[in-house]
Design a binder for these strands. Sequence first.
DNA 1: TTGAAAGCGCTAACAT
DNA 2: ATGTTAGCGCTTTCAA
Lengths: 367, 367
Amino acid sequence: MPEAVSRPTLEAVAARAGVSRATVSRVVNGGDGVREPLAERVRRAVEELGYVPNQAARSLVTRRHDAVAVVIAEPESRVFADPFFALQLRGISKELTAHDNQLVLLLTEGRADHARVARYLAGGHVDGALVFSLHLDDPLPGLIRDAGVPTVFGGRPDWDEDTRAADRGHAGEEAGRGVVYVDCDNRGGARTAVRHLVGLGRSRVAHITGALDQTSAVDRLDGYRDVMAGVPGECDPRLVVESDFTPAGGERAMRELLDRCPDVDAVFAANDLTALGALRVLRASGRRVPEDVAVVGFDDMVPVAEQTDPPLTTVRQDIEEMGRLMARLLLRGLSGGRDTEPPAAGTPGTAGRGVILPTTLIRRASA
Amino acid sequence: MPEAVSRPTLEAVAARAGVSRATVSRVVNGGDGVREPLAERVRRAVEELGYVPNQAARSLVTRRHDAVAVVIAEPESRVFADPFFALQLRGISKELTAHDNQLVLLLTEGRADHARVARYLAGGHVDGALVFSLHLDDPLPGLIRDAGVPTVFGGRPDWDEDTRAADRGHAGEEAGRGVVYVDCDNRGGARTAVRHLVGLGRSRVAHITGALDQTSAVDRLDGYRDVMAGVPGECDPRLVVESDFTPAGGERAMRELLDRCPDVDAVFAANDLTALGALRVLRASGRRVPEDVAVVGFDDMVPVAEQTDPPLTTVRQDIEEMGRLMARLLLRGLSGGRDTEPPAAGTPGTAGRGVILPTTLIRRASA
DNA sequence: TTGAAAGCGCTAACAT
DNA sequence: ATGTTAGCGCTTTCAA
C-alpha cells in the first residue's frame, strides 16, 4: 500500500487553479508578482491537491539542492565514544532545518571511503559540506578542495596549505587563507585549566595529552606549555605523557605518570574521558582527589563530568554551538556570495578564516 | 575558487567517445547490451572527463533517489546521552553505503517538527525511511503511514494498528500487519537478567524501570515480571520503581528502593545508565556490590559498563547490527518488491513483521 | 547493438 | 501581472 502514489505536478495545480504553470511556480516560490486573488486560488489548489514540489526537477534547473553533506571521519575517532558527535550534529541540524536545508550524513571508515566521499561531493549532489577532519595528514581536505565544494571544517584542519599547495603547484595562490573552520579555543582553554591548577598552589602539574595527530590535542598541549614555561623550574618533560583521549588511555598514562613522578600533585587531562581514567588510577593508588592530586579535564561532557567521583572540574566548550555556527557559516557563504572563499590576498584581519569559540572553566570538586 | 565548476554531461562524454548519449547511459548503468570495444571507449571518455552522473536529472526520470531518510525523534530521548544513537547510525550507514544509498538525517525536536518530517517524506525525496519512534503515542508513525513511504522502525513502535486504523476507518485492512520493525529481545533479555539474579540465590530482586512511555521499558518490565511471577512470594510490588533510563533517575529510584525495601539484595536496572546511578547510591549507602546487593544492567554500553565500579554485569544487545538490519530490510523491500508491505492477510508466520535480535548476558563483577 | 527522440517536473527568460 | 517556451541532464521506448 505504500505504493509510490504519483504526486500531483505543477501542471495539475495550474489546471485546477486555471492558471499557467509559471504562475503556480511563482506562488510556490514566494509569490512575488502575482496578484492576491490569483495567488490565493493557487494556494488553495496546492492545498487541495496536496502538492509538494519535486525537488529533483527543481534542482535540475536551479542547480541548488538545499542539502549539505556532513562528513565525519569515524574510524579510531572518539566519535562513537562520547556524545560529542551527537551534540555537534544537533547544532548543525537545527541550523540547517531553520534554513530548509537537508543534512546528508557521510560516515567514513578509513581511507577506502575517501574516494567515495570525494566522488559524492564532486558529483554536485549537495551545495556544500561540513567536514570533521579529525586527523593530521588526512587526505580528505585535499580531496575536498579538489572537488570544489564550499566547505567549512569542524576543528582546525592541519592543512598547511602553503606546503601542500606548493606540492601541487598552487604555491602562489595563498590558498591556505581559504580554509574556513570553527574550533574552540583549545590553547586558551588549556591555559585556563593549567593556570587554575597553578593558582591552587600546585607545583607539579602534569599533562596527559590527547591523540597528537589531532590539532585539538596539539593545541591543548601548547596551552599547557605556555603556562608551564612561566613557572620557574616546572618544565619537567616527564610531566607530559602522551595518550589518546580514551579512558583506558588515561589510565595507562596516569599509571606511567605516577611511576615517573610520584610527587605529581595536579593533572590536566586532555579531555574528560582521559580524566575519568586518571581519576580511577589515582583512587586505586590511594591518592585523594583533589587533596593529594587535583584533576582538570576538558570538554565538559556533562554526563561524564558530573558523574565522576569526585565530580570533574573541566574546561567547557559549547559543542552544539560549534555545529550551529559551522552550518551558519556555510549557508551564509552559499547564499551571500563568496563567503567561504578566500578573501582577496592581503585582506587584513581575515587571515586564517577560522572562528574560535571561547571556553570556560567549570569548577566542580576535582580541582 | 570552489566555484561550482560545471561538470561534464552525458552529452560531453558521448561526443568524446563518438557515440550517442543513449550508449553512454547504458555503459554508465551497467553496460548491458553494449559491445565491448565501444563500452571501453565510453569508459575511457568518462574517466578522462571525470564524468559523474547528475543525480537530479536521473531521479527525475527514474523516480528513484538512492537515498534513505533516518528519522530520529530526539527530544527527551536518551539519544544524546549515550552512544546508542551513534552506533545505530554507524550500522545503518555501512549498509546504505554498501548499496550506494545516501543517508539523509532528520532530527526532530518535538511536535513542531513532525509536520516538517511528514512533508519531507511525502515529498518523495527519498526512497524510504528508517524511523526511531521512541515514544508511545507518537504521532509520527501515523503521519509516516499516511505519507506512504516504505518504512522500517527501530524498536517496536507502539502502534496498536487495530485500534488506530479503526479510528481512521481502515479497520478491515489489518494494517497492523504492515509495520516492519527491528528490535532486540527486550523481554527475553530481561528474563535472562532476572533469572541470573535469582540463580545467584537472591530472594529480593528489584527492578528499576526505564521510561514507561517506551516499549523497550515496558517489555523489560514484562520480562522481569515473567520470572518473578514464578518465584513464590516474590511478587512484592514495592520492588518495582519507575524511572527514566538516566543516571540521575537511577539514583533517585535506588534511594526510594532502599527506603521502601531495605532488605533488597538484587537490582535489575532497565539500562546501564540507570545501573550506574543505582551503583552510586548503593555505595553511598554502605552496601557492597555484589556481596550485599547484586546489580544487572541492560544494553552493554561498553564505555559505561566497563568503567563502573564494580564493572557491570549486563544484558548485551548488538546495536550496530540493529541499524544494519534495519537498512537491509528497507533496501530489500525497495528493490526486491513488496517486502516492506503487509503480507496478504492471513499469511502464516508473518504476523507482526518484526525482527527481534537476541541478547546475551555479559558477566562482569556486579552480579 | 546502436541511435533518435520524447519526455521526467520544474524554473527562468522572454513575450504579451 | 501573467502566459509561453525553451531547456536543465538523464533514461527509455522505439526505430533502424
